[in-house]
Simulated scan of single mutants.
Amino acid sequence: MRVLAAMSGGVDSAVAAARAVEAGHEVTGVHLALSRNPQSFRTGARGCCTAEDARDARRAADVIGIPFYIWDLAERFHADVVDDFVSEYAAGRTPNPCLRCNEKIKFEAVLDKALALGFDAVCTGHYARIVDRPGPDGGSGAGDDGVLIRELHRAVDPAKDQSYVLGVLDAGQLAHAIFPLGGSTKTSVRAEAERRGLAVADKPDSHDVCFIADGDTRRFLAERLGAESGPIVDSSGKVVGSHSGAYAFTVGQRKGLRIGDPAGDGRPRYVLDISPVNNIVTVGTADELVVAELEGDHLRWCGAQPDVVSGTEGAKGTAESAVEFECLAQLRAHGEPFAAVARYDASRGTVTVRLIEPARGIAPGQTAVFYDGTRVIGSATITATRRPVAAQAA
């Protein structure tokens, strides 16, 4: 196959490209220039997309022996990821820019361009596995066309698993994706890079939000949204403090509230709700963060739709308008999955997720990714949360 390897300048994408070559593919490396004004050097392990990263990617491509190009996607990245990040915070939600980048940049803008240029697939250094399995007829394919069912699964190394941030990929995108590192550990990848003579073998990983190099999200948002003071209130409506911008908070946050007094019983307080309309931040106890049910939209099936536990017919009795399925719901990039029952209402375009055991501190704007064992079923953006009935009545 003709494969386009996205090379960030880090060790993972370099080894992934090398493995794609070793697998017999015709590989071309590409570095995505995503910053409008890239810095010359990285700040420690934070951020990416610097001039140094581009040079590291080019050197790795030279060692591997593949053609290399730089694609300028800064404007598209700014519109689809950075502007989205800012507007979500302004609306009182907590977005995950890594998922948006995978959906809109790496597996939409890049994949579309790659296919138009005659490439068959895009290869990245994500830690996740793709499994092709026979169709339900027991033969070699799904249905009559002989096409295998492609599934996205967790990586072998749970500490590095990145299937959560890939849960936004749909079946069409998954069909043209290659993840060579899904069966490896980070330690083995670094050792392999050393053996291959790749200078990035010991390069630190980037972390946090890649386009906020110093990690100061509050400052980044303040520069774009400005300061607007408002009250911090407890769940009874009593004013307990003030803030200079509701966007600087996220549900579940404990530190940085600048509240002089603890709750009446002496327990620490956490952010319960952010209301951008009236610029109010509501705080309360940890018990008030408990969530029993979620609602979401922007549902994307990652491969085949799951087996239906129960369903209802459409208004004319000709099509299924709602499906219900058991799953494990992961609500944060590095969080533990929760056993759940999800119900997707196609007529409304929403999904309701009932958690078997309640979670804490789940914010609108975050992404719920649904699993069947290690397989990713799909994902949805959380739009609302509901507390247990007993807690609401208290």
Rank of each mutant, 00 (worst) to 15 (best):
T94R: 00
D62K: 15
F107K: 07
D83V: 15
F107R: 06
F107M: 14
K106P: 02
D72H: 11
A91L: 08
V63N: 09
D56P: 10
R76Y: 04
L34Q: 04
A74E: 11
S35V: 01
G47N: 12
E108C: 00
E52D: 13
G47D: 11
A74G: 13
F68Y: 08
P67F: 03
A74D: 05
N102D: 01
W71D: 14
D112Q: 06
D53W: 06
D112G: 01
D62I: 00
S40Q: 12
A57R: 01
L73C: 07
T50N: 12
I66A: 09
S87N: 11
R58C: 09
F41Y: 13
G65Y: 10
T50D: 14
L117F: 06
L32S: 05
D112K: 04
E108Y: 03
G118V: 06
G118F: 01
K106F: 08
P97Q: 08
A116D: 03
R36N: 08
V110A: 12
R59E: 14
K113P: 00
E108L: 11
E75V: 10
T43M: 07
G44Y: 08
A91M: 05
A60M: 04
A45R: 15
A45G: 15
L73T: 00
A114G: 02
R59C: 07
W71C: 06
C48G: 14
F119T: 07
E75F: 07
R46I: 07
L73I: 13
P38Y: 00
C98T: 12
A51K: 13
D120Q: 10
P97R: 04
I64N: 06
F41K: 13
P95G: 04
N102E: 06
R76D: 11
R59S: 05
R76L: 12
R100F: 00
E75C: 04
F68T: 00
P95F: 00
A79S: 07
R76F: 07
G44W: 05
E103P: 00
L73E: 05
N37H: 00
D80N: 14
F119H: 10
A57P: 01
Y89N: 08
C48T: 15
F68Q: 01
H78L: 05
L32E: 13
A116M: 05
G65M: 09
D112A: 06
A33G: 04
T50S: 13
F107G: 02
D62H: 15
S87D: 15
R100E: 07
R36W: 11
I105H: 05
G65F: 04
D83R: 15
G65C: 04
F107W: 12
C48K: 06
P97F: 04
V82S: 07
L73H: 09
I64M: 06
R93K: 11
D53P: 01
I70N: 00
S35I: 00
I66R: 02
E108K: 08
